[in-house]
Design a protein around this nucleic acid. Structure first.
Lengths: 222, 222
DNA sequence: ACAAAAGTGTTAGCTCTACACCCATGT
DNA sequence: ACATGGGTGTAGAGCTAACACTTTTGT
């Protein structure tokens, strides 16, 4: 066995059932038997990191052919983080809409709050998860990434719920509406409407091609 | 020789002689003989990444015992980036005041503009450098990191010159002054003054303990 | 008719920008 | 006296937060 290995680990987040949730792998062998871990695995010698990430999404997360936003998060490499050998892990952050459950029974969506409470994380994966959640929270402020949590067509209220759930705060529906519909190239109206949220029919939008959100949507501070 | 190696590479930036400059290593052997590269090297099996970074700062950059701001930048790992073997590089970004030249003749401060023009970079180090510069530019907006480019005591005008040189833009001295002196815990006045910039004596400040800059100092946009 | 949610208008307060202007030093 | 850069004041534009109000549906 080589003495040094590189892995890719995935923090895949979504909003489902009114909670911010992450894709977790239920371990069934030592070390950390029975603990949750992030989906991931060793890179191959001839494989680029984004390619390895896509392979893990398909093989380990059970999400083949699903287009989600993916970006590199950080790299974790202190010497004894894996008791078996020296492992350097490159973590990637993925943001996904509320997808059907994974095809693998071992892979589950779990609310982030529960994962933080339960002291059953393998390796340093709880830390990696927290870093990913914080990155997502921060990026909602000044990018259009919140739409990555939404289905292809969505309403302003659904987008607002994403912000409220990820940030854990309430937002004024009226000011929020003005802000996101006013931002350049963030939301493209489809012309269609829906009443799936109750009340007056709401416009349906698709994601625009803006990446930055200017002016930013700042989190309410205490 | 092992088939997979992990290195740490350093993007160490400073402002000297009115230019944004980076610490570069002049290569004297294949591959890329004669090209510039970033200082860096292989991690040891029992060595944490930040520890390896400090060791590279001392051994390869010739900057032992110098306290600078260091943060992880990104990880680069496509398979043929090093022709000898598979190398995954964890890049770190360092921001330093205008330090004396390195103790090693092989290590030089070079203006970033020149490094981008000259097509003589080893590996993908030009790309890593650009990512580091862009990270630094972005972080000046909403953190207090600009002060990491300044000596222990500095004036508001010196801090402003950091912003102007890193961003390549002019800033209004009066509005800048109001903004940075008004930000909470960013600058602590020492009570001393200096006339080293000419004109009326300027207050000297030391860095405060704020990490965030609120409200942010936004770059002028076209 | 009523509840519920979408969406618009309004106002007070804040921040940003642009500049006029004064201050304290070296020459 | 004058040049140089430090530092303050101020008015207009734009943004934000808070909330009253109208619109359009389902029941």
């Amino acid at each position: 066995m080589p003495r040094l290995a590189v892995t890719v680990d995935l923090v895949v987040l979504t909003v489902r059932e009114q909670r911010l949730s992450a894709l977790t792998w239920r371990r069934d062998r030592a070390p950390y038997d029975g603990c949750w871990s992030l989906p991931g695995g060793f890179i191959q010698l001839d494989e680029d990191l984004p390619v390895a990430t896509s392979r893990m999404m398909a093989e380990r997360a059970g999400l083949a052919d699903v287009r989600i936003h993916l970006e590199q998060l950080a790299t974790y490499g202190y010497p004894d983080r894996d008791p078996r050998q020296r492992v350097v892990s490159v973590a990637y952050l993925g943001l996904a809409p509320d997808l059907p459950a994974s095809s693998r029974a071992q892979v589950l969506w779990t609310a982030v709050d529960e994962l933080k409470e339960r002291d059953r994380a393998a390796f340093d994966h709880r830390r990696i998860l927290c870093d990913g959640v914080e990155r997502a929270r921060a990026k909602l402020e000044y990018t259009s990434l919140a739409a990555a949590f939404c289905p292809p067509e969505f309403t302003v209220a659904e987008l607002r719920r994403v912000y409220e759930i990820v940030w854990g705060t309430g937002l004024d529906p009226r000011n929020f509406h003005r802000k996101v519909t006013g931002a350049d190239r963030f939301l493209i109206p489809t012309g269609r409407t829906t009443t799936r949220d109750g009340g007056r029919p709401a416009q349906l939008y698709v994601r625009g091609d803006a990446e930055q959100l200017r002016p930013p949507m700042l989190r309410p501070r205490p």
